[in-house]
Each structure stands twice: as C-alpha cells, then as structure tokens.
Amino acid sequence: MLELRLLQGGLLKKVLEAMRELVTDANFDCSRSGCSLQAMDSSHVALVALLLRSDGFDHFRCDRNRSMGMNLNHVAKLLRCAGNDDIVTLKADDDGDTVTFMFESPKQDKIADFEMKLMDIQSEHLGIPEAEYQAIVKMPSQEFARICRDLSTIGDTVVISVTKEGVKFSTKGDIGSANIVCRQNTTVDKPEESTVIEMKDPVSLTFALRYLISFTKATPLSNTVTVSMSSDLPMVVEYKIADMGYIRYYLAPKIDE
C-alpha cells in the first residue's frame, strides 16, 4: 500500500508544471525515505532530478518500494482539477496498475478521486557523482528567469561566465548581442533577494537557452535558484522545495569541436 498525503496540493501542481515541458514520461520511485524521479529530455541534453522526502508529507506510507510510470502531461492535467488549497492524496495498491489522486477541499465538503493507469517505462538511471563546483551562484529565481527570457529575444545560446566581478550572461544573434552582469549583492534587506557568488576558479560555459527557459518553469517553487558550474561538468540549476527536497536540472554544455 502506498499513501501520500499533502495538505498543500498546490505544491504538487507546481512540481508537475516544472517538469512536464522537459520530460513526457517518467517513473516516480517511492520508498520509505520519500519520492524521487530522474529523467532525461528526449535529446539527452538535460536531466531533471526531483526529491520529495517522506517527512515533508502530512502522511506518508510506503510498504514496498514502487516505481510508478506516469505521463507527466496527464498528471499535470489531472492536478489542474484540484484547487490550489485542496488536500491531495495519492494512493496505489502494491500490485495494482493504477494510481488514485484524491482531492479534498479545505472544508472537506468536496471530495474527488481520479484514477489513472500507470505505464511501464524503461528508463536509464544515471549515477550523478558528488562534485565540487568551481562556481556557485545563488540568486532570486525571478531574476534568473527574467535574464533567460530577455536574452532569448537576441540569441539561442548563452555564455555564463563567473569571475570576481560577478556573473555575466552573454548572447549573440542575427540582430545583435547582449550582456547582463549580476554582481554579488548581500546588502538587501531580504536574503531571498540577494545574489551570492561563491567562486573557487573563474568558469565560463555555453548553454542552449531553450533548456534554461524550460528549467525556469520551476520558479514558482522557490524564491531563489542556485546555479553550479565547473568547466568539465554539466551545470546544475537547483530550486529548493521548502521542507521537502528539491528539483535539480542538469544541462550539458556546448563544447568546442
């Protein structure tokens, strides 16, 4: 028996919206420690890793490890039938091939259940080694989304460079070029509005902007985003999910031929 209950159903909606553009089908792996998902986009350029720890749920029961294959667009559509304040419960039998989403209104005067067929998804699980990154930038998530969107009006790729001066986002296109520099800024009143740069070595990497724009669908999950880069590794873009875990996106760089 699997039973996961979340008082803040809206959170689950945000999680699905943050993944469904990048990944169509994925396995939700549930164990006593929580729920996780790892999936690559169809071109194997980006990878999304989700963790929702069991202690972040209001009720979490998982008698047996389960890997439940789902079409993320179908789940997102289903969750749109839940109110933002609804309590959402996921239920599945150990041997069943369906999952039930139950939505309860906050006053408990409306209860809906939607049953969805599970899919058999063969997915490759990648081992992601722990790494020390040359540069880690923490900044407001809305600012990061704004920068990606603004640069995409000029070009398709972005060069992200971290130096002592700050983090520079540069692009070039047919109509011209653009540079946006963000300096470290820890003097603002609210920590979530600050930009913090931890740099061991300067680093400069090139990425396809359209993937970064997909990652920013996670902006409603967190006020801040952390971007980690090393010259010989995919970048990591992480949004923390309050008290529960994270959604991390890994993006392979563009490299010289």
Binding site: M40, S43, H44, V45, A46, L47, E124, H125, L126, G127, I128, P129, T157, T206, A208, L233, P234, Y250, L251, A252, P253, K254, I255, D256, E257
Partner: peptide, 14 residues
Amino acid sequence: VRQQSQITSFFSLG
C-alpha cells in the same frame, strides 16, 4: 562552432 554535448557523456549508467 560549438557542439551540443549530451548528459550521458558525463554521467554513467547505474
């Protein structure tokens, strides 16, 4: 010209 690399060339299966 820069070529797009793939995640699978950095992380191993397993």
